[in-house]
C-alpha cells in the first residue's frame, strides 16, 4: 500500500472529488497560484484551472459567506481557512448562516459546504493563531465537525465531507501535515460519525482525536512497556456526529476512562463525552473519569513551554497513571 503524507492525503481527496463532481470548487487564501500556504492544494490549479481552484482575498467573512450562498444554489465549495483560528472573522457566516439557514427555512435549504484548514497549537504562533474551535463549532446544531488524525482518515473523511449535504467543518493540523501513513490507491470513504479503535487494550480507555490521539498512541506504548498498563485508544475522528457507542463499549471493557484533547478544558468536547459516559455507563466505571486538556490559558508563545501547555506523551502517561 502506498505511504503518503497527511498533506498529500487531503490533496488526493480534493483532487478525486474535483474530478468526480463538477460542482466542487476549492477556494481560499493562497490556494491556487501560491499552491497553498501549507502546500495542501499544490498542483490543483495547474490540473483543474482557475474556475475550480480560486484564490480569495484575505476576507474570511466575505468569501466564507459567499461560499455558503453559492452552496444554497448547488455549488459544493470546499473553503480553506489558512488557519481555523480565522473562523472568528467569519463567525456570523459560519454559525448564523451556514448552521441556521436550513432550520430557519423549515428545511427548504441545505448548505453542502466544507470549511477546512488547520486548527492546532504547537507551532509557536501565539494565542491568535492556535485556536482549536471544534467544541465551539460542535455546539451549533446544523454543522458537522470532523478532526482526522491520520492520512488514511483524512482522505476518507474529507471525501465523505465533500459529498455530505450538510455543512462540514473539517479541522486539520499543521503538525500532522508531514506525517506519513498507508493510504490505499483504490477509492474509499470513511463515514462521518464513526470512531476508530486505534489500539486495543484492557486496563484503561483513552478517548481522543486529532494530534492528541497520535500522542495518546505514543503514550500507550510507554504505558505498556514501562508500566505494564494495557491501554485502548479510541480516536473519535468525528465530533459531530459522535460515535459514543464505541466509547461506551470500550469503557465497558476497561472500566477506566481518560479523555485527552487539544482543547481548553472549559466546555470542551471532553466535557460532553464525560457527561455522556457517566450518564450511560456509570456503573461500569471503577474510577472517576479523568481528562487531560490544554492548560487553561491563551496559547503561550515560548516554544519549550508551549509543548508543556499542550497534551504530550509525557503528560498523557502521567494522567493515565492517575486515572485509578
Amino acid at each position: 500500500m502506498p505511504v503518503i503524507t497527511y498533506r498529500e492525503a487531503v490533496r488526493h481527496a480534493l483532487a478525486e472529488e474535483l474530478e468526480r463532481d463538477p460542482n466542487v470548487v476549492v477556494m481560499g487564501e493562497e490556494v491556487a497560484q501560491f499552491n497553498g500556504a501549507y502546500k495542501v492544494t499544490e498542483g490543483l490549479l495547474a490540473r483543474f484551472g482557475p474556475k475550480r481552484i480560486v484564490d480569495t482575498p484575505i476576507s474570511e467573512a466575505g468569501f466564507i459567506g459567499m461560499g455558503v450562498g453559492a452552496s444554497m444554489l448547488g455549488v459544493r465549495p470546499v473553503m480553506e481557512l489558512m488557519f481555523w483560528s480565522f473562523y472568528s472573522v467569519a463567525f456570523d457566516q459560519i454559525l448564523n448562516n451556514a448552521a441556521n439557514v436550513r432550520y430557519m427555512s423549515g428545511g427548504q435549504i441545505n448548505v453542502p459546504i466544507v470549511i477546512r484548514g488547520p486548527a492546532n497549537g504547537g507551532t509557536n504562533v501565539g494565542a491568535t493563531h492556535s485556536h482549536t474551535p471544534e467544541n465551539v463549532l460542535a455546539n451549533h446544531p446544523g454543522v458537522k465537525v470532523v478532526v482526522p488524525a491520520t492520512p488514511y482518515d483524512a482522505k476518507g473523511l474529507l471525501k465523505s465531507a465533500i459529498r455530505d449535504n450538510d455543512p462540514v467543518m473539517f479541522l486539520e493540523n499543521t503538525m500532522l501535515y508531514g506525517d506519513k501513513g498507508e493510504v490505499p490507491e483504490e477509492e474509499y470513504l470513511i463515514p462521518l460519525g464513526k470512531a476508530d479503535v486505534k489500539r486495543q487494550g484492557t486496563d484503561l480507555t483513552i478517548v481522543s482525536y486529532g494530534r492528541a490521539a497520535i500522542h495518546s498512541l505514543k503514550a500507550a506504548e510507554e504505558l505498556q512497556s514501562q508500566h505494564g498498563l494495557s491501554v485502548e485508544v479510541v480516536d473519535l475522528r468525528s465530533i459531530r456526529p459522535l460515535d459514543i457507542d464505541t466509547v461506551l463499549a470500550s469503557v465497558r471493557r476497561t472500566h477506566r476512562l481518560l479523555i485527552v484533547e487539544e482543547q481548553k478544558p472549559f466546555c470542551s468536547v471532553g466535557s460532553q463525552i464525560a457527561f455522556m459516559v457517566q450518564k450511560e455507563a456509570f456503573d461500569e466505571l471503577d474510577a472517576p473519569i479523568n481528562r487531560l486538556a490544554t492548560i487553561d490559558a491563551p496559547a503561550i508563545y515560548s516554544p519549550p513551554v508551549e509543548v508543556e501547555q499542550l497534551p504530550n506523551p509525557a503528560r498523557i502517561v502521567k494522567a493515565a497513571l492517575a486515572t485509578r
Binding site: 466575505g62 459567506g65 459567499m66 453559492a70 455549488v75 457566516q93 448562516n97
Partner: peptide
C-alpha cells in the same frame, strides 16, 4: 446576508 447574496451571484 450580503455575502450570501454574493454567493448566489457566484453560483
Amino acid at each position: 446576508q450580503i455575502p450570501l447574496g454574493t454567493g448566489l451571484a457566484y453560483a
